[in-house]
């Protein structure tokens, strides 16, 4: 790659050669500096903070692994984590099933495809604040659209206090999350469907495969790469979710919608337990990493057996 100059001045040539070897690093340096300082550094520097008892103002005190011991023995940790798991199962299953179903329908319905795609994708460009505030009114028990619709349809037994009832609230938030993202996942599935060659379906039809068999033995295996993408995105989203519960329920009622990211924020900035909050962040980090690794392992190991 370095340009070959005539060997006239050996030291200069040597210097130029070294400089041109360094120059790629100069190109990446600005981006790397910003990423290193504001993303990588906090990932590391928090480790030391997680060993402190610190309110952010007074002199911090070193307490070893006490924060982690407390997290493991705290019942709240289990409650909050179970909410995350519940949220993950609900949103992932909901988003994947619904968006795959719609993508298959849209793949066939040629007329109006742009209209459907544009409309269904729209909530992606809306802020979670707008979506969250809007839906907290739609969920209003007396005047909200949802209960009004259910009453109108004569489905009074389904009418409930969507955000105020601890047994329902988390599922209501899951519905909002699915609402915001199903169009997004549908577009990704659609791109996957469009990349499947028609010949595969023709061959399957000649072999006498039914529509359902074609779905099972052609569509699903061919969609495997986009399936991994869609599941990974929604799983990561579910374990990092903050905006929806913070805006719509603030974790209530009675911690029914409290999730890890919210718990970390509340411990840190409402109770000023900086050390404990930092330790919680690493627990979340480990869980997210494990979940991602297990999920990728499960989904890619299927490749060999198929």
């Amino acid at each position: 790659m370095p340009a070959t100059a005539k060997p006239k001045n050996a030291p200069l040539k040597e210097w130029l050669r070294r400089a041109s070897k360094l120059s790629p690093y100069l190109w990446i340096l600005p981006a790397l500096t910003v990423y290193g300082i504001f993303k990588l550094y906090p990932l590391v520097s928090g480790l030391q903070m997680s060993l402190l008892r610190w309110d952010g103002i007074e002199e911090p005190r070193y307490i070893g692994l006490r924060n982690f011991q407390r997290i493991l023995s705290d019942e709240m940790t289990a409650t909050v984590l179970m909410n995350n798991v519940h949220y993950a199962v609900g949103t992932v299953v909901g988003k994947i099933v619904l968006s795959l179903f719609l993508a298959i329908l849209l793949h066939q319905a040629l007329r109006g495809r742009t209209f459907y795609r544009t409309s269904l994708f729209m909530p992606v460009v809306m802020s979670f604040v707008v979506v969250g505030v809007l839906w907290s009114w739609l969920f209003n028990p007396q005047f909200g659209l949802i209960n009004s619709l259910l009453r109108g349809l004569g489905l009074d037994f389904l009418v409930q206090d969507w955000l105020g009832d601890a047994a329902v609230a988390l599922n209501s938030l899951i519905l909002v999350d699915i609402w915001k993202w199903y169009g997004f996942h549908m577009v990704i599935f659609l791109a996957g469907l469009q990349s499947i060659p028609d010949e595969l379906y023709e061959a399957a039809r000649i072999d006498g495969a039914s529509v359902w068999q074609q779905f099972l033995h052609v569509t699903l295996p061919m969609l495997h790469p986009v399936m991994i993408v869609n599941v990974t995105i929604s799983v990561m989203g579910a374990f990092n979710v903050f905006d929806i519960p913070f805006i719509m329920t603030a974790g209530g009622p009675a911690n029914a919608t409290n999730v890890m990211a919210l718990h970390i924020y509340i411990r840190g900035f409402k109770f000023y337990r900086f050390g404990f909050s930092a330790a919680l962040s690493y627990v979340l980090l480990v869980i997210v990493t494990l979940v991602a690794a297990i999920q990728l392992k499960l989904m890619t190991s299927g490749d060999n057996t198929d």
């Binding site: 504001f38 993303k39 550094y41 906090p42 990932l43 520097s45 928090g46 903070m49 997680s50 990561m236 374990f239 990092n240 990211a261 970390i264 924020y265 840190g268 900086f274 050390g275 909050s277 930092a278 962040s281 690493y282 979340l284 980090l285 997210v288 990493t289 991602a292």
Partner: peptide
């Protein structure tokens, strides 16, 4: 993809 620990951040 890693969630940044908000306290050190």
């Amino acid at each position: 993809q890693a969630p940044v620990p908000i306290i050190p951040f």
